[in-house]
Design a protein around this nucleic acid. Structure first.
Lengths: 339, 339
DNA sequence: GCAAGTCATGTCATCGATGTCATGGAATTC
DNA sequence: GAATTCCATGACATCGATGACATGACTTGC
């Protein structure tokens, strides 16, 4: 690895002058500039990022911590962050938090040791107070879920509104028995989506029925089983609102295996191939790439102007993509007594 | 940020002694050890990774460069690398190379500035000779494609064998008109898959027909159009071998839009939801997570034992996952003259 | 013609952790 | 009791880039 000193020696100047040339300092004569530049070329000089940022005390790296980098949603978020970061010459270090909330803190602390210049995370635990002491070292932005027990910037989707729209969409198609499938309401995101669901039923003057509320599944497989149970009810749902994309990839095949593609389905969160399934699945799209971009831009803005004030809470709108999975409910939805 | 010096001052020792305590050096009395440790706790000391690795000249970070982090295949590879890296206390910095080969070098050079401890990349250009000068600074491992004009470790899937198996599978189901859709044969991976395709036809004693070779598409959309053209032929294919997963996500919907789900399809590379599409798509599975893991393990092994010799070329086996998309060819495959 | 200003370049210190060597006291050996 | 070894600890230099400040040459103004 050639250093500035190597280049300096070759160009017969001091290391400082090489630094000046490298950083386009105007106080260098054209002559020396030429000499230094050709020395750099000959020695194939590549700056040691780490030395620079070590000195600055802050690296040109944005840390990203999400539940799972391989999840299509977070992979797209990562892409969005990466593109925005690269435009500003920053790199990204990525970490998966997994699904064990108790590991969150130690994973984050490991990431933080790398002297990151900013952190973007989608939390999985319900207490981020441990991050407080880093807040004045580098900006922290939360995505997907708001932080708990910590004041920090966050960008979340409009969970309530999206769920409301999704449910309303089903109702508008004539469905009166609408089930909701999702994970635990202890997850704030899910709680909001559940509230949106209830609000939409309420707005339509409908009662919600406890048996159609199937929250608390752990994963896509569990969600699939829950569907079976729902459809076995005496008075089964004609439509299902899947409150997250990961579960939808379990719910859809389950419906298919049971031969019940007549059941309407709408998913909070788009997922791969949703548009080419039979029937294609209507979704509430969250535009993950955009989420990543705005989060990254906030980090960059906070780095550039630390004093400036920004809005902490940011709700990103979602939009309903209508496909085929929400056909009208069968005309004879209510069991009628024999005439 | 509290430094070792801060801790030292508080514990009334030198920074060096704090360093010793931190690194479990036995030459410290129990008494001082206690004092230092409590000082560390009180000040919430967290080591400055960057200072350490700057001194060492090499960071505890593995660089990953793939065409697109959001692509499900590479997202899964990344996950595999991450898991293996984390077990060894290494972080990962991820970069997307995009699809413009001429940018590869500059993107990689930007990544390299971060003093990475190793590099795992899936190249997109056809010349990696520019990496030669870093080869003795840190280990480099290629995945998915072998490097060009550079000697380095690589782990590739069995492109030839997988393509052979896929094609043979179609033939075994009675197909005699088997088309291949893919990108340019300038891509080594594609070239090998094409050769596997030809070899399988040959092994079955079949001639290949030029009109069924539809290579050179740029993206999934182009591949979709190519399918239309294929099916419009006077003597159209009854089966299609899609030589990469990304294109399959274009080919499948195209067949569906044309109402030609009777056409058999097999994809080199699994893709999300392939198992729940109608019909579900048979694929050659590459196990991306495993690819990531073995690549990371090689990097770690090279770091741990630089002198040891390893096998450069590593071909990972692939396996055929049979689903529904390869039904037998229609019995009346050849147009017959009216009796 | 000389003081003040301008400008190219260099010297030194710094960021935090740690390897190298020095120091000085205690323990051990003959 | 003197010589030797051991051991805890500290002082200093180091990694590479760069900010603060110094230096010395040359220009400008009156």
């Amino acid at each position: 690895m050639t250093t500035m000193q190597d280049v300096a020696t070759r160009a017969k100047v001091s290391a400082k002058t090489v630094s000046r040339v490298f950083n386009d300092d105007p106080h260098v004569t054209e002559d020396t500039r030429q000499r230094v530049q050709s020395a750099m070329r000959e020695l194939k000089y590549v700056p040691n990022m780490m030395a620079r940022t070590f000195r600055e005390g802050k690296s040109a790296v944005i840390g990203i911590a999400v539940p799972d980098v391989a999840d299509p949603f977070f992979a797209a978020v990562t892409k969005g962050i990466e593109l925005a970061a690269r435009e500003n010459d920053m790199a990204i270090v990525v970490t998966s938090l997994g699904d064990n909330p108790s590991l969150e803190q130690s994973i984050i602390e490991t990431t933080v040791r790398h002297q990151i210049g900013g952190l973007i995370m989608a939390p999985i635990a319900d207490d981020q107070s441990y991050l407080a002491r880093w807040q004045d070292s580098f900006p922290i932005v939360f995505i997907d879920r708001a932080p708990s027990k910590l004041n920090a910037d966050y960008f979340v989707e409009d969970d309530f509104g999206g769920a409301f729209d999704a449910t309303q969409h089903l109702i508008a198609h004539g469905h009166r028995r609408v089930a909701i499938v999702g994970d635990s309401t202890e997850v704030p995101t899910t709680r909001l989506r559940f509230q949106g669901y209830l609000a939409a039923l309420d707005a339509a003057g409908m009662e919600h029925s406890e048996e159609l509320i199937a929250l608390g599944s752990r994963d896509a497989d569990a969600a699939a089983q829950v569907c079976q149970r729902l459809l076995a009810l005496p008075d089964p749902p004609t439509a299902i609102f899947s409150s997250n994309a990961r579960f939808s990839t379990g719910v859809f095949p389950a419906l298919q295996r049971m031969g019940r593609t007549d059941i309407a389905l709408i998913s909070f969160g788009d997922f791969p191939m949703a548009d080419v399934l039979q029937p294609s699945v209507s979704v509430i799209d969250q535009d993950p790439r955009h989420v990543g971009r705005v989060a990254a831009e906030r980090i960059l803005a906070r780095i550039a102007t630390p004093a400036k004030r920004f809005r902490r809470k940011n709700v990103l709108s979602v939009k309903l993509i209508e496909r085929q999975s929400c056909q009208p409910a069968p005309a004879v939805a209510v069991p009628v007594a024999a005439p």
